[in-house]
């Protein structure tokens, strides 16, 4: 379960050596997800294949019922596919047990939800530090890294506030800080602007863009076309299938 260390910057100056292409962050191979049985059978995902490389900013769009939420659950290792294989940063998730999946979620994925999902009655900085607590980072270091993460989303002044004392946009930024504090390989956002006004939405999307510019891999689930337009790659879903994909830019 050792987290592969991303190639150090110094490598860029090294002489080019023939190497395999860097492994994709997400690789879905004929993934199916079926709910119910017989008459009531619903194919939420019907053999989806998708590869997302490191550094991409992808929007997965589709109407409600298109399977994009199921896609999000599977990509986020919150749910297992009925059949097919899913490689998360090169690790086949189908072979992992619950404990290992929890560790994958903790180490490799940062979640941003539509309804922020901060823990109530817990200060912003403690919310941000929480994923680190689950990987046994010492308390002092946790606090330090949480403050840095809050600083990165421009909220260091609100570190001591409770979620209830923050606006929606601020809460979402705290949630993004929490997602980033573990330095995950993937930032997975589920309708991140769904509960925000236009102004706050713009702020969040600007933040995503700047994170993307700094090399983060971001997957954003949304049903709003103008939000999806901010991404560099748009994957459109319908009835459990991908119907269009603007494709990888790089």
């Amino acid at each position: 379960m050792a987290t592969p260390i991303p190639a150090p910057a110094a490598d860029a100056w090294a002489a080019p050596v023939p190497r395999r292409a860097p492994r994709p962050v997400i690789a879905l191979d004929r993934v199916r997800k079926v709910y119910g049985q017989g008459e009531a059978e619903v194919r939420a995902l019907d053999g989806v294949g998708l590869t997302i490389k490191r550094g991409e900013f992808v929007a997965i769009v589709g109407a409600s019922g298109s399977g994009k939420s199921t896609m999000m659950n599977i990509i986020g290792c919150l749910d297992a596919p009925t059949s097919g294989r899913y490689f998360m940063d090169g690790i086949e998730t189908g072979e992992l047990d619950e404990f290992q999946l929890a560790q994958i979620r903790n180490r490799k994925i940062g979640f941003v939800f539509q309804s922020f999902n901060l823990i109530p009655r817990t200060r912003a900085v403690e919310n941000v530090a929480m994923p680190l607590a689950y990987r046994k980072v010492p308390r002092r270091e946790r606090h330090q890294r949480a403050l840095e993460a809050l600083d990165a989303v421009g909220l260091s002044a609100r570190a001591g506030h409770l979620p209830s004392q923050l606006s929606g946009g601020q809460q979402q930024r705290v949630a993004i800080a929490r997602a980033l504090v573990t330095e995950p390989v993937l930032l997975l956002a589920d309708e991140p602007t769904g509960a925000l006004d236009t102004h706050s939405s713009e702020e969040i999307l600007d933040l995503f863009e700047s994170l993307h510019a700094r090399g983060r891999t971001i997957v954003m689930i949304t049903h709003e076309a103008d939000v999806a337009a901010r991404a560099e790659r748009v994957v459109r879903m319908q009835d459990g299938n991908i119907i269009s994909d603007t494709g990888a830019v790089r």
């Binding site: 619950e98 929890a102 560790q103 901060l118 823990i119 929480m130 994923p131 689950y134 929490r178 573990t182």
Partner: peptide, 9 residues
């Protein structure tokens, strides 16, 4: 939320 951010059973 806790499980999503990596809490184990």
């Amino acid at each position: 939320i806790r499980k999503a951010i990596g809490a184990t059973r």
